[in-house]
Amino acid sequence: MKEKDKIDINALGATLLDVGALLMISGASTGRIRNTISRIAASFGCNADMLISQRTLMLNVHNGKDDRFFNSLKRTSVHGINFSVLSGISRMSWLIAEKNWTIAEVNLEVKRLAGLPHYPRAWVLILVGIAGAAFCRLAGGGLFDMFMVFLGSLLGLAVRQKAAKMRFNPYICVYFAALTSALIAGIPLKFGIGDAQEHAFATSVLFLIPGVPLINSFSDMIDGNLQNGLIRGLNGFMISFTIALGLFTVMFIYQF
């Protein structure tokens, strides 16, 4: 019996770290990670304390009955926002208590969630292109501007995905994407085709805006997780700065 408990707490700790790391890279706020981990730990009758940072998680699990505990660190991999995982883990954390899942079942579910398929690449590219065109329209651009932004966003995202696959630094990926989009959307402005093209140039890079880091930053700050909030905000700021750098490069090339 005692031996079984011992294995339990180690397996539980490892699983909790996996879940936490998965939540972190999928774009959850710090409060959400802490709540989810505590909830899962509580349904196994344990207490979990965490130190959460952008790149590393530190976890301590104990059950309060004896002096055994689990204590470990885990590094998170590169962040890639995935809200299907967020939603799946949130659902799972409630199901564990309701249906009395074992740790093996939790591991299986985590594995399934991590392997969930993304939208088909062509769909993502086209819809993000349309989103760019929508930004352009909202800023007051015409049909031709919208088309150029559509093209720019689509190719920009394709370049970003390609660069990420080639394992470039994430910020450099954003720079390449901004460069591509602005180069394409800047063509009408450079050669004087159509009218009101500054909208196109300015909105072509908007599909890169770091919405999740910035909103999570504010969420963290207002929850009192000031350190994480600051770090996420800084990350968002770095991405914005990289986008601006891409725009400036294009302005230099086109001599605007």
Partner: peptide
């Protein structure tokens, strides 16, 4: 309402980029 449509489309583009579940 055209503006409303474009607000929606821009959001859907980002939703797909963030890989939200289809039902949402």
């Amino acid at each position: 309402f055209e503006r409303g449509f474009w607000f929606g489309m821009a959001a859907v583009g980002f939703a797909v980029l963030f890989n939200v579940p289809v039902r949402t």
